[in-house]
């Protein structure tokens, strides 16, 4: 028997008054599939099952979801990593409103991203060629710019659950530091001023769920620590 027991969160606002868990039997033919492959097999059984997906190789960030209790990307999570006792439970990312099944409304997550002004700011006239940056300066962006906005981190963060409208969250703060750390960005002071309130950065309690779930192996907690250091250096 290679039938995998999958329990999946279902909710269609048009037909369901409340969400429920639906059981699927999926024949994996003994292969160590990715969770996304399993979702596709389930969609062949029930075309109404809704989930997002695009690149299927872990770079687009579409299919962040909660698999057996842990957030991650379905497309790069092999069954062998998550399945216990032949059972897999799939739920949408926690803490965001559900639109349908595994699809969540990421509006507030994107809003926090936009809030940190996620673009390079440099009002000095641009040279005719590129702005120069030493390899050492560029190295500071490694571990920051690779974020794919999948929201696995922010939706695993209790501080973000409680205050998603005020706490920027790990993803947004990682990007905030990506620009604070860029030698080409000149808006450091403005960026810091915008972050010094008790919520935006300081609601981080160092729980480090973000680090534990990031599918790209990034470390938002470290970036948040660096922002705090910069704030402290700037204000004292």
């Amino acid at each position: 028997m290679s039938n995998l027991q999958v329990s999946v969160y279902r909710y269609n606002p048009e037909t369901d008054s409340a969400p429920y868990m639906q059981e699927f039997q999926v024949d994996t033919k003994g292969r160590d599939l990715m969770v996304l492959d399993v979702l596709h097999l389930m969609k062949e059984q029930d075309s109404g099952l809704a989930f997002r997906r695009s690149c299927r190789e872990g770079v687009c960030g579409s299919d962040g979801m909660n698999m057996n209790g842990k957030n991650g990307l379905a497309c790069i999570t092999p069954l062998s990593d998550v399945v216990k006792n032949n059972k897999l439970t799939l739920r949408p990312l926690p803490g965001l409103p559900v639109i349908r099944d595994m699809v969540v409304d990421m509006g507030i997550f994107y809003k926090q991203y936009e809030r940190i002004q996620p673009y390079l700011q440099n009002e000095t006239p641009a040279p005719a060629i590129e702005r120069l940056q030493s390899p050492e300066e560029r190295d500071k962006l490694d571990g920051l710019y690779e974020c794919i906005l999948c929201a696995c981190c922010s939706t695993s963060c209790p501080s973000f659950w409680w205050n998603p409208d005020k706490f920027v969250g790990p993803a947004g703060l990682l990007q905030s530091y990506r620009f604070l750390a860029d030698s080409r960005d000149t808006a450091t002071r403005e960026r810091l001023t915008d972050l010094e309130d008790p919520f935006s950065v300081f609601r981080c309690r160092g729980i480090m769920n973000c680090v534990a779930v990031c599918p790209k192996g990034l470390n938002p907690t470290r970036a948040i620590g660096k922002i705090r250091e910069m704030l402290l250096a700037d204000a004292t």
Partner: peptide, 14 residues
């Protein structure tokens, strides 16, 4: 690059 694309760099900064 001016928009912020984080290109890798040579030692001379290019």
């Amino acid at each position: 690059e001016h928009m912020g694309l984080p290109f890798s760099r040579f030692d001379n900064g290019r």
